[in-house]
Computed example of a mutant assay.
Amino acid sequence: MSKKESTSRTLLVALAVSLVSSVFVAGAAVSLKPVQIENRQLDKQRSILAIAGLGEATMSAREVKDLYNSRIKARVLELDSGEYSDAFDPKLFDPLKAARDPKLSDALSGEEDVALIKRRERFTTVYMVEQDGKLEALILPVRGYGLWSTLHGFVALKSDLNTVVGLGFYQHAETPGLGGEVDNPKWKALWPGKTLFDDAGKPIIEIVKGGVDPSSAQAGHQVDALAGATLTSNGVDHLLQFWLGEQGFGPYLAKLRTQGV
């Protein structure tokens, strides 16, 4: 067999192996996609329950689903109007995907974009903890840039729409031991009971470098900054200012207060 024929045969075998491998990989990706979607949904539900102070971290998938379905009500919200929308199914709507769609989002100017998210979706999903038809807590999705990554999380408010139930992030890539301390239970434990707004509904929550003075009149709306992680701490501060303000959930929360919820 000539050298040319040998080379051609080798290339054909390599091509055949590549094609077969591609078919298997594509097939596996397609078959696993529903499982991946379900796992992402489960992780999100677990995060929402944790921020609301419901359930235990050791709950099974079935227990998470049952508790979520019995206590949490999701609704799609139009941010500019502060009104609920039936345009999308809250179980399927993806606000992050909408933020990348020019038809469903708006570009932010430098002055507006304190959270450094570039685009803000026009619709998002909010989550209500209800008991016997009464609102116990309201859970709002928040995100913003830290030092190395966008932090994605939730802040939960009591029914007074001012007092923090919990704050946590389910996705980020901050430095372990520094900005990654946003996941530290000790830091997260500083948030419950803090107030977010002044009497006029303006965000006043603040992350303080060097620690909060407990004797200060401002201590009720201040939280210690993360040690050695100034930019991540600033990022959390900025994302809260954005999402609690007029560009975020400000109009929605104002309507709820007027309605006496």
Score class of each variant (00 low, 15 high):
Trp187Arg: 06
Lys118Ile: 14
Leu15Trp: 04
Glu63Gln: 10
Val126Ala: 14
Ala156Ser: 15
Gln36Trp: 04
Leu135Gln: 10
Leu244Pro: 00
Gly245Ala: 08
Ser105Asn: 10
His238Lys: 12
Gln218Pro: 01
Val30Asp: 08
Leu138Met: 08
Ile72Ala: 01
Ile48Leu: 15
Asp86Ser: 10
Val76Gly: 00
Ser70Arg: 13
Gly248Leu: 00
Lys118Ala: 13
Val13Pro: 01
Pro185Met: 13
Thr58Gly: 12
Phe242Ile: 02
Lys209Thr: 04
Gly201Trp: 02
Phe24Ile: 05
Leu196Tyr: 11
Val64Cys: 09
Phe169Asp: 01
Leu96Pro: 08
Gly235Lys: 03
His221Arg: 10
Met1His: 12
Pro192Ala: 13
Phe169His: 02
Ser215Val: 11
Pro90Ile: 14
Gly166Ile: 02
Val155Glu: 01
Ile204Arg: 06
Tyr84Pro: 00
Asp86Thr: 09
Val182Met: 11
Lys73Gly: 13
Asp101Leu: 08
Trp148Leu: 01
Ala225Val: 03
Thr163Asn: 07
Gly144Phe: 00
Gly168Pro: 06
Ala28Cys: 03
Met1Thr: 07
Pro95Val: 10
Val212Lys: 08
Gln171Gly: 06
Gln241Glu: 08
Lys202Ser: 15
Phe24Trp: 09
Ala57Arg: 11
Leu231Arg: 10
Lys65Asn: 15
Gly133Trp: 04
Gln218Tyr: 07
Glu78Asn: 15
Arg100Met: 13
Ala16Cys: 07
Lys4Asp: 10
Asp66Ser: 07
Gln259Ala: 13
Leu138Tyr: 03
Pro141Asp: 03
Lys73Asp: 11
Ser70Cys: 11
Lys33Thr: 05
Ala227Leu: 10
Thr150Cys: 00
Leu49Met: 13
Glu136Trp: 03
Val236Ile: 12
Ala225Met: 09
Ala29Gln: 13
Gly177Leu: 10
Thr58Tyr: 06
Pro203Lys: 06
Leu135His: 06
Leu226Cys: 09
Val30Phe: 11
Thr175Glu: 12
Ala61Trp: 08
Met128Lys: 08
Ser81Ala: 15
Trp187Ser: 05
Gly168Ile: 04
Thr258Gly: 03
Glu63Arg: 06
Glu174Pro: 02
